[in-house]
C-alpha cells in the first residue's frame, strides 16, 4: 500500500483536481446543479464560461453537458448520486450515450453515506443502472489518494466515465487501474470494491483466501480475476458497496469456461431500509460491516 499523500476527503480532491484542470485544459467545463457549486466559485471566477451552475435542474444539467460535448468540450458533471444518475437517467442514455459523446460524471453520497437524509438521498443502484448502458467506465475509489489519478485519466480522455466518490474510505490507498492482489491465499478469492477493502481484510483475517482489490469495475479486469483464481480456487466472493450482485455477471463472464462458485455481497435488493442513523448502522443492516462480512464469507468457504 502507498503512503497517504493527502488528508483531504474525496470530494475535496475532486474539486481541487478539476479546478486545476480548468486552468490547464481549455476543453474542461464543469456543470453543477447547485450541489458543490460554492466549492467551484473560485474556478468560476477564473473561467465563467466553463463553470456552469444550472440551478436545481438535473435534466438540464445532463442536457447541457451533452451540448457542451457536442462542441468539443470535456464536461465534468457533479451532484449527489440520486440526482446525477437516477433523476436524469434518460438524459444519460440519450444526451450522452445516444449522441455518442463523452463526459465525466462525479457523484458524492455513495449508497448511503449520510442516511439521516433518508431514502431520497440514497442510490445504491447507480452502478447497476449505468451497467444497462454501453460504453461507461466506472471508478469506485477506496481512498482520497486514488481519486486524482483516476480523475486525471478521465479528464484527458473523451469517453463516458463515472467516478463514484464516497465519504467511506480505506486506511490506505492502492495503485489504480488493474485489480490489485492485496493478500495471497489458496482457498478462493474475495474481490473487494472501493471502500469495502478494509472491512473485507478484517473479515478475512486468518482465512487462507486471496483478497483482490478493485477501484475500477468497468471495464472489469477479467485477466486480473482469472489470475487470482488460477492461484487459488474458482470460488469467488464479490463485495461491492452498492447493489448486491452488480458485477456478478462480469465474474460469470470471466469464469465462463471454469466451473465455479460465486457469492455476491452488497446492498440488499429486496427491501427499502426505512431508517436513518449512520452509515455504519446501515452497513450492519446489509451485512456489510466486518462482522456481517465475516459471517457470510466464512460460511461460503466453510
Amino acid at each position: 500500500m502507498t503512503t497517504q499523500q493527502t488528508d483531504k476527503i474525496m470530494r475535496t480532491v475532486f474539486v481541487d483536481t478539476v479546478s486545476a484542470a480548468l486552468d490547464e485544459d481549455p476543453r474542461i467545463a464543469v456543470v453543477t446543479a447547485d450541489i458543490s457549486a460554492g466549492a467551484f466559485a473560485p474556478a468560476r471566477e477564473r473561467h465563467p464560461d466553463r463553470v456552469i451552475n444550472v440551478g436545481i435542474r438535473e435534466q438540464a444539467m445532463i442536457g447541457v453537458a451533452g451540448g457542451l460535448a457536442l462542441t468539443g468540450l470535456r464536461p465534468v458533471v457533479h451532484s449527489y448520486t440520486p440526482f446525477l444518475v437516477e433523476r436524469p437517467f434518460e438524459q444519460l442514455k440519450l444526451d450522452l450515450g445516444h449522441q455518442d459523446v463523452g463526459a465525466v460524471l462525479a457523484s458524492i453520497g455513495g449508497s448511503y453515506d449520510d442516511p439521516v437524509w433518508g431514502r431520497t438521498h440514497q442510490a445504491p443502484g447507480d452502478v447497476a443502472l449505468l451497467d444497462t448502458l454501453p460504453g461507461w467506465t466506472v471508478h469506485v475509489p477506496g481512498h482520497p489518494d486514488e481519486v486524482e489519478p483516476l480523475l486525471r485519466a478521465a479528464l484527458a480522455g473523451s469517453g463516458r466515465v463515472y467516478l463514484r466518490l464516497s465519504a467511506r474510505e480505506n486506511g490506505s490507498a492502492l495503485p489504480t487501474g488493474e485489480f490489485t492482489l492485496v493478500r495471497k491465499g489458496s482457498r478462493g478469492v474475495v474481490l473487494a470494491v472501493g471502500p469495502m477493502l478494509d472491512g473485507v481484510l478484517a473479515a478475512t483475517a486468518g482465512l487462507d483466501v486471496s483478497v483482490l482489490y478493485a477501484s475500477t469495475v468497468r471495464p472489469f479486469d477479467h485477466a486480473g480475476l482469472r489470475a487470482a483464481v488460477a492461484g487459488a480456487t474458482p470460488e469467488v466472493v464479490l463485495v461491492e458497496p452498492y447493489l448486491a450482485g452488480t458485477s456478478a455477471h462480469q465474474v460469470s463472464e470471466t469464469l465462463a469456461d471454469v466451473p465455479h462458485r460465486l457469492r455476491s455481497l452488497g446492498v440488499s435488493r429486496d427491501r427499502e431500509v426505512r431508517a436513518y442513523g449512520t452509515a455504519t448502522d446501515h452497513d450492519a443492516v446489509h451485512g456489510l460491516d466486518p462482522a456481517g462480512l465475516a459471517v457470510a464469507i466464512r460460511d461460503f468457504f466453510h
Binding site: D49, A65, G66, G67
Partner: peptide, 8 residues
C-alpha cells in the same frame, strides 16, 4: 437542453 449546452 442539448441546444443550451451547445450554445454555452
Amino acid at each position: 437542453g442539448l441546444g443550451v449546452g451547445t450554445a454555452l
